[in-house]
Amino acid sequence: MDKQVDVVVVGAGPVGLLLAIELELGGAGLMVLERLTAPSAAIKGTAVGPLGVEAIQRRSMGPALAEAEDRHFAAMGPAGAARRALIGREMNRQRRQERQEENKFLASLAPWRFEFLLFRPASQTRRRNAQLNAARWSETAEASPASEIRAT
């Protein structure tokens, strides 16, 4: 093969194909390589992250992807409907878990939350930050088994 390309995209999964589309629209010469010789019926990428959603919206591909998903699950028959329901339940469980973790994180910040809203001179803020950092360092040093090594 004597074809000259700027970029070779390895893998024709969701990320590889979206990357290929973006590169092609940007004017790059490219080639997509895929190890499978026939289309796969396996679901690839059951969830899309925020940057992926942004890229899909930027290219107005959302409705086409939703239609393709509907066709894919319909072709699977009753098993497709069951699988779609399972994926929906799993995604809801993941969202609940992420919200719980975020709430725990925000609750852990509660003592510090209003510290940044106080108006005080920069020297006092620096002194307070130094005190907080020293307290955190001493807590971690006491909890660490390596604290004896540092002390010697």
Rank of each mutant, 00 (worst) to 15 (best):
M1T: 04
Q4V: 11
V5Q: 02
V5G: 00
V8T: 10
P14R: 15
P14V: 15
V15K: 11
L18I: 12
L19C: 13
A20Y: 02
A20K: 06
A20E: 00
I21F: 03
I21V: 10
E22P: 03
L23N: 01
E24H: 04
G26M: 13
A28N: 03
E34W: 10
R35M: 08
L36P: 05
L36H: 11
T37P: 03
T37G: 10
A38F: 08
S40M: 01
A41N: 14
I43E: 01
I43S: 03
G45R: 11
G45L: 02
T46S: 07
G49C: 01
P50Q: 09
P50I: 07
L51P: 05
L51H: 09
L51Q: 14
G52N: 12
Q57S: 01
R58M: 04
R59W: 11
S60F: 08
M61D: 09
G62T: 11
G62M: 15
A64Q: 15
L65D: 08
L65I: 11
E67H: 11
A68W: 13
E69H: 10
D70F: 02
H72E: 06
A74T: 08
A75R: 04
M76D: 01
A79M: 03
G80W: 03
G80T: 12
A82I: 00
A85S: 03
L86E: 05
E90M: 11
M91D: 11
M91A: 12
M91C: 11
R93V: 01
R93A: 09
R95Y: 01
R96D: 05
R96W: 09
Q97T: 09
Q97F: 07
Q100S: 13
Q100M: 12
E102N: 12
K104F: 15
A107K: 06
S108M: 12
S108D: 06
L109I: 07
A110C: 14
P111M: 14
P111E: 10
W112T: 08
E115L: 07
L117S: 01
L117F: 00
F119P: 14
R120A: 14
R120Y: 09
R120S: 13
A122E: 15
T125F: 06
N129M: 05
N129D: 06
N129Q: 03
A130N: 13
A135S: 08
S138G: 04
E139P: 03
T140W: 14
A141T: 04
S144G: 08
P145R: 04
A146Y: 01
I149N: 04
R150T: 08
